[in-house]
Design a protein around this nucleic acid. Structure first.
Lengths: 299, 299
DNA sequence: TAAAAATACTCCATAGGTATTTTAT
DNA sequence: ATAAAATACCTATGGAGTATTTTTA
C-alpha cells in the first residue's frame, strides 16, 4: 500500500522537478528518495516521472501529484485538528447534572467555563442520579455533576466540595429556642421532602431519627422550589442544601437555620467512567466548579 | 508523521470497536495493531480510544475516524486511477504528425485507435518536422509520426513502414517510353516541389540528378493537394508519396508511374524522447498505424 | 565532461511476532 | 473468572546512509 512517506517524497519531486533537491527538502539522501519513488511506481504499476538530465512528470504523474497533494493536505488537516484537541476542555463534552444542583451552580459555572474555554461545546442534561449513572455507563454522557458517593464498579469519582444542609422552617412557626438547630427538633414537626428518586430525599432522611422519619411526607415535592414554597406556606419544615439557599430563601418567606456540629452535608463531585481518557479534562472542569463556590466553612 | 498503516489500523478499530478483530482484519497480531494505535495517539497527542472490557471511541476519535476513512478512500482512488492507467494507450496522448502524412493516414488510423483504445484521449497537432521535434524536446508533445531518419540526440525513433515515391505527371504530357519511370526522366521536365521546410521537398531532391534539380521550382507549393493540382494543370511533374496517391490522384487528372528499382521511398516512423517511459505505448500505437497500411511491396 | 539519478552494500530502526502480564467486567 | 488489551522481548524486514556507477545532455 502507498505510504504517506512516498506521497511526501513524490509531492516534493512533483513540485521541485529534481530528485536531489526534493531529497534535501525531505531531509533524506537522494538514493533514499529515489528508491521510494521507484517503489511507488512499482506499487502503482505506472511510470510517474520521466528521468533525464532534467526530469518531467508523465501525464499519470501529474494526476497522481494532484491527488497526492490533496491527500497530504487532508493528513495535515487531521493533525491540525488533533493539535487543537490537545488542549483540555475542547470540543464536545456531555455533562449531566442532578436537579438539586443544576439551577444553583450552572448559572455561575457556565459563564465561567465559556470564558475560560471558548472552544468547549457543552451539552447539559439534567436528570436523576440513577439515569445519569446509566448514561455514563452506556457512553451517552461523558461526565456527571452530582452528590457522592456513587458506588458503581465502572464509575470513578472526583470530590469537589461539601454542601451543608440547613433547616428551612415557616416564618410563622414558633421561634427556635436556640440559635442552631438540632436533629431532634425535627421530631416535633412535619418534615417535607422531594419525591422518590431524588438523592436529596435519601440524604435528608439519613440524618433523621426514627421519630422524624415518621413525620416525613410520603408524597414528596418534585423540585426544591416547590418544596420551599410548601415550607413558606406553613406545611412543614425541610432540609435545604446551602447552595440553594440564596436563590430559594430569597424569594420565599422561610426561616433558615444552621445545624449544630456535626453539620449534615452532602459531598458534591464529578462522576465518569474510570476508563475515560478525559480525566484531566474533568479535573479542569472540577477546578472551575470549585472556584465558583464560596470558600469552605471555618470550623 | 501519521502513516497510512496507522490510518488503516485505526479505521478497522473504529469500525469493529475491537482491537483483536481489527488486527485479524488487518492480518497482523493484536499487539502489533495496539502499538500502532498507541503510536498514533502519541503522534496526535490525543486519546482516540477509550479502553475497557469493550472499547469506545472518544469524541476526537470519532472525528479522526471520519477523516481517516476519507483519506483512505482518496488513497484507494489514487491506486484505482493508477490501475486504469496501467493499460497501454490510456489517458492523454499528444501526437504530432507532419502535413504530408496527416491527411492520408489519420482518416484510417484514428477510428481504428478509438475502437481499440476507448480510454485514449488523443490530441493531434499537425506541423513541420522541425517544430514537432522541438515540441517533443520541450515536452509539449509525447510522440510524433513523421519521416525518418531524425537525427537528434534526445530523440529515439521507431520505424514503421516504407512509403514509396511515385512520379506524377500531367495527363497531357507525352506518353512515357517505358512502363516504369527513371530518375533521368526528370531531367527533361519542370519539377514541382513543396515549399521550404517540408521534409518531402528535401527527400524528393535527394533522388534527383543535378540536371533535374535545376529544373526544380524554387517557390514551392504549400500542400500536396496544391502540388497535384499544379501537375494536373500541366505546370510540371512531381514525386508523390504512395500513401497520398489514392486520395490526390483520384480527384485530379494526373498520370502516376512507379519508378524502376531501386524505387525511391521514405521511411515512416514514430519519434519520441528516448527518456520517455511510454515506449510500450508508442509501440502499440505503431502497430495500429502499421496495421492500417497495405502489406509491404513484393520485391 | 558535468550533473543527475540509479545501483550496490551495509547498518540500524522499527514493525511485527510470541509469550506473558495487566486490566476490566 | 474470563476476555481483552498492554507489556516485554526478540527477530527480521526494509528504510536510509555512503560510496560508486550509469546515464543524459
Amino acid at each position: 500500500m502507498i505510504s504517506t512517506k512516498q506521497l511526501v517524497y513524490f509531492d516534493a519531486v512533483a513540485r521541485l522537478k529534481h530528485f536531489g533537491r526534493a531529497a534535501d527538502e525531505c531531509a533524506v539522501t537522494q538514493p533514499a528518495l529515489s528508491m521510494q519513488i521507484q517503489e511507488m511506481e512499482r506499487d502503482l504499476g505506472v511510470s510517474l516521472v520521466e528521468r533525464g538530465r532534467t526530469i518531467r512528470l508523465t501525464d499519470a504523474g501529474e494526476e497522481v501529484a494532484t491527488r497526492a497533494a490533496r491527500i497530504l493536505q487532508d493528513i495535515e488537516g487531521l493533525t491540525d485538528f488533533a493539535s487543537k484537541r490537545r488542549a483540555t476542555l475542547t470540543g464536545r463534552l456531555r455533562l449531566g447534572v442532578i436537579p438539586s444542583i443544576a439551577p444553583y451552580l450552572l448559572p455561575t459555572v457556565l459563564p465561567e467555563l465559556q470564558s475560560q474555554y471558548q472552544s468547549l461545546e457543552l451539552r447539559i442534561r439534567e436528570t436523576l442520579t440513577e439515569y445519569l449513572v446509566a448514561q455514563l455507563d452506556d457512553g451517552t454522557l461523558d461526565v456527571a455533576l452530582l452528590a457522592l458517593p456513587i458506588d458503581e464498579p465502572k464509575i470513578e469519582t472526583l470530590s469537589l466540595f461539601e454542601d451543608r444542609f440547613l433547616l428551612a422552617s415557616p416564618t410563622d412557626a414558633p421561634a427556635p429556642r436556640r440559635k442552631m438547630a438540632r436533629f431532634e427538633d425535627l421530631d416535633e414537626v412535619p418534615l417535607l421532602l422531594l419525591e422518590e428518586g431524588h438523592c436529596l430525599r435519601e440524604q435528608a432522611l439519613s440524618f433523621c431519627t426514627l421519630r422524624s422519619i415518621e413525620n416525613a411526607d410520603s408524597f414528596g415535592a418534585s423540585s426544591l422550589s416547590t418544596l420551599v414554597q410548601m415550607v413558606a406556606s406553613g406545611m412543614g419544615h425541610t432540609l435545604l442544601p446551602e447552595m440553594s439557599v440564596d436563590l430559594e430563601a430569597a424569594r420565599n418567606k422561610v426561616r433558615v437555620t444552621r445545624f449544630e456540629a456535626p453539620e449534615p452535608s452532602r459531598m458534591i463531585g464529578l462522576a465518569f467512567r474510570k476508563t475515560s481518557p478525559l480525566k484531566a479534562d474533568f479535573e479542569a472542569l472540577g477546578a472551575v466548579i470549585k472556584a465558583t463556590q464560596p470558600p469552605p466553612p471555618k470550623v
